[in-house]
C-alpha cells in the first residue's frame, strides 16, 4: 500500500487527455480552478504539467516524447473509466468526508481530498484491502458479530422508525422496532445508532460503464458509542424490502466482497 499526494491541477491536466472531466464520486468541480484563487485556466494546466514533471509522473517535453508514466496512466484510467467504484461517505456534522476506491484492471486506487486542497491517492494490493479501508474509514465496529440480527422490513417502515428515533420519541421507536422483530436490547442499540451514532455514513458500491455509475448498491452504516454497528440496505430495488442488520468490520467487508463477487458471476 502506497500513498502519494497530488495537486488537483495535475489530475485536471491528465484528465484532459482522456476527454473526460467527471470522476465518479467526485464530479468535476474539485479538479477545476476556483474562480477566485486560480482563475486562469492556462495557468492551472501549466501548473499541473509542471507539478507532474517535477514529480516524475510526466516525462519528456511538450515538444518531444511527452508521456505519462505507466503508473500515472493506470491511475488516470482507473479514475476516468472505472469498472467499479466504492464511495465511502462519513458524516461529519452536517457535512461529510469522502474516500473513494476506483478499480480498473489491476489498479485499485483510493482517492481522498485533504483540507489543504491536495488529493491523496492510495494504491491497494487488492479489493479486500480497499474494502477494509473504506469500512475502517466509516468507523465500523471491530468486534466480530457474535449473534447476527437481521430485520427484514421496508423503506417506509424504517423511515418511520428513523424519524421517531431522531425526534426523541424513543419509546415509540423501540416499540416499532420490536414490532418489526427486534429484541428490546437490539432495539435500544438501533435507536442509539440512528439517533446518536459515534460514526455514521454510507458505503456505496457503484458499478460503472462509460464513466457513469449505472447500478448502485448503497449501505447506510451507523455505529454506537458501545461499538455496535448497524447497516441498512435495500437488497433489491427501493420498492422491495429494506434490511436492518447488525454488522462489523469483517461482516460488512464480507458482505461487500460477496456482493461484488455475485455481481461478477452474474454479469460476466
Amino acid at each position: 500500500m502506497t500513498t502519494i499526494r497530488i495537486h488537483p491541477s495535475e489530475l485536471a491536466y491528465a484528465f484532459s487527455y482522456s476527454s473526460t472531466v467527471d470522476v465518479v464520486g467526485w464530479g468535476r468541480d474539485p479538479f477545476l480552478p476556483s474562480t477566485e484563487a486560480d482563475g486562469d485556466p492556462k495557468e492551472w494546466y501549466a501548473n499541473g504539467a509542471a507539478r507532474l514533471s517535477a514529480a516524475g509522473r510526466l516525462t519528456g517535453t511538450s515538444d518531444k516524447d511527452l508521456n505519462f508514466t505507466d503508473e500515472m496512466t493506470a491511475d488516470v484510467l482507473a479514475l476516468v473509466d472505472p469498472v467499479l467504484v466504492l464511495l465511502a461517505e462519513r458524516k461529519e456534522g452536517d457535512g461529510l468526508q469522502r474516500l473513494t476506491i476506483h478499480m480498473k484492471k489491476d489498479t485499485v486506487l483510493g482517492m481522498m481530498h485533504t483540507p489543504d486542497g491536495m488529493f491523496e491517492l492510495t494504491h491497494y494490493a487488492d479489493l479486500t484491502a480497499a474494502v477494509v479501508a473504506c469500512v475502517g474509514f466509516l468507523g465500523a465496529a471491530r468486534a466480530p458479530v457474535q449473534a447476527g440480527t437481521r430485520i427484514d422490513s421496508n423503506q417506509e417502515a424504517l423511515q418511520k422508525v428513523h424519524q421517531l428515533a431522531t425526534t426523541g420519541q424513543n419509546e415509540s421507536a423501540i416499540a416499532s422496532l420490536v414490532e418489526l422483530g427486534a429484541t428490546e436490547q437490539d432495539a435500544a442499540s438501533i435507536l442509539q445508532a440512528m439517533a446518536k451514532p459515534t460514526a455514521a455514513g454510507m458505503l456505496s458500491i457503484l458499478y460503472c460503464t462509460n464513466n457513469i455509475a449505472q447500478t448502485a448498491r448503497p449501505y447506510s452504516v451507523m455505529t454506537t458509542a458501545e461499538d455496535e454497528t448497524w447497516i441498512l440496505f435495500p437488497p433489491a430495488s427501493l420498492e422491495g424490502p429494506m434490511v436492518l442488520e447488525r454488522s462489523s468490520v469483517s461482516a460488512l467487508t464480507a458482505r461487500v466482497l460477496i456482493e461484488v463477487a455475485t455481481w461478477l458471476k452474474i454479469t460476466t
Binding site: 464520486g25 461517505e89 461529519e92 468526508q97 485533504t114 483540507p115 479501508a133 475502517g136
Partner: peptide, 30 residues
C-alpha cells in the same frame, strides 16, 4: 489498509453535503 482507513478520517477534508452531491453528475438516475 484498515488502520490507514481509520486514520484517513483525521486527514480528510470536510465538505458540505451540497458540495458533495455535485458528484451526482456521474451517477445514473437509478
Amino acid at each position: 489498509a484498515f488502520e490507514d482507513g481509520v486514520d484517513k478520517v483525521s486527514r480528510a477534508a470536510v465538505e458540505t453535503y451540497e458540495e458533495a452531491s455535485a458528484a451526482a453528475r456521474s451517477l445514473g438516475e437509478g
